[in-house]
């Protein structure tokens, strides 16, 4: 029986909970990170890769990945880019404002697959937000992993979220990694090129002993998958986070249907060999 059919509606997250914004950080020109706590009751617990439906009465509801730490039980942290009416309204919230929250939803990153192996995290653009909880998890479980490597590609130096934290991670001795930008600007002294370049140069791990988790625009992920395969990775060792139009987040409405799967319920995290054919089909 599908997971979404196994419990009554009120246990599935259809009923929103009121959250209050307790912190706000302007990440990029059009992107903010909000910290939120429920007005009543305990904070939401979640797994890396899960998302919530964030809503404002009379405006609408959108799915947003959770970008905070799954380890500390602190405020819920989510990064929102203002691209439309709902996301702009949520991104415009300030400390003390309230909103509605449903979730968490979705299949998480299979972080336990990385235990005893190298964990290679590859992100592009705002795809860094859904993998950020993996990094928190990996650093908290560093002793159980053979290694942690983060490769990140951005549009340009002005488009890198969590900048100070990212540089701190990459400079630490607990993980390795590199970042690259597609477009140079005057203040940038680092590498210029697509994120796939980093796979050839920096991902020095043994593919047979590595799990790769990839998040970013779908076209970017397709190129990354090809680059990983060229390095000797098997499809079954590569995981991606997909995005589609989500409405109910329960696999009922069908808005996010991708062939035989519902991205909100069966994903958003998928093993590549399970969705590979779906990723290149038009009209899906």
């Amino acid at each position: 029986m599908p997971r979404s059919m196994a419990a009554p509606v009120w246990e599935l997250g259809m009923e929103p909970v009121v959250y209050q914004v307790t912190g706000r950080h302007q990440e990029l020109v059009d992107t903010v990170t909000l910290q939120m706590t429920p007005v009543d009751g305990p904070a939401m617990s979640f797994l890396p890769g899960q998302f919530t439906m964030m809503g404002l009465p009379g405006i609408g509801e959108i799915p947003v990945s959770i970008s905070g730490s799954p380890n500390d039980g602190g405020p819920l942290t989510q990064t929102i880019r203002a691209v439309g009416k709902v996301s702009a309204a949520i991104a415009g919230l300030g400390v003390g404002d309230r909103l509605l929250m449903r979730g968490p939803f979705g299949e998480p990153w299979p972080v336990e697959e990385a235990v005893g192996r190298h964990l290679l995290i590859i992100a592009g653009g705002l795809g860094l937000a859904p993998v950020r909880p993996i990094v928190y998890w990996a650093l908290a479980n560093r002793g159980r992993l053979a290694g942690v490597e983060l490769l990140y590609g951005a549009r340009g130096p002005d488009y890198i979220p969590y900048g100070a934290q990212l540089l701190g991670w990459l400079a630490s001795d607990r993980m390795t990694g590199s970042l690259i930008v597609d477009r140079h600007s005057d203040e940038w002294a680092g590498p210029v090129g697509p994120v796939t370049e980093l796979i050839g140069r920096h991902a020095t791990v043994d593919p047979a002993k590595t799990v790769a988790m990839v998040c970013g625009p779908e076209i970017m992920m397709r190129f990354v998958i090809q680059a990983l395969e060229a390095r000797g990775f098997a499809d079954s060792d590569i995981w991606v986070s997909m995005e589609r139009n989500m409405k109910c987040a329960l696999g009922w409405c069908g808005h996010c249907q991708l062939g035989p799967v519902f991205v909100c319920r069966d994903g958003p995290v998928f093993r590549v060999d399970h969705v590979r054919n779906l990723m290149t089909q038009s009209e899906l």
Partner: peptide, 23 residues
């Protein structure tokens, strides 16, 4: 290929087509 990927401007803000997962 690298040049084509850079030309694609992969990380440009998406055009809103409903409620997409923000990633």
């Amino acid at each position: 290929l690298a040049t084509r990927m850079q030309l694609l401007d992969l990380y440009a803000p998406p055009v809103e087509v409903g409620a997409k997962l923000q990633a």
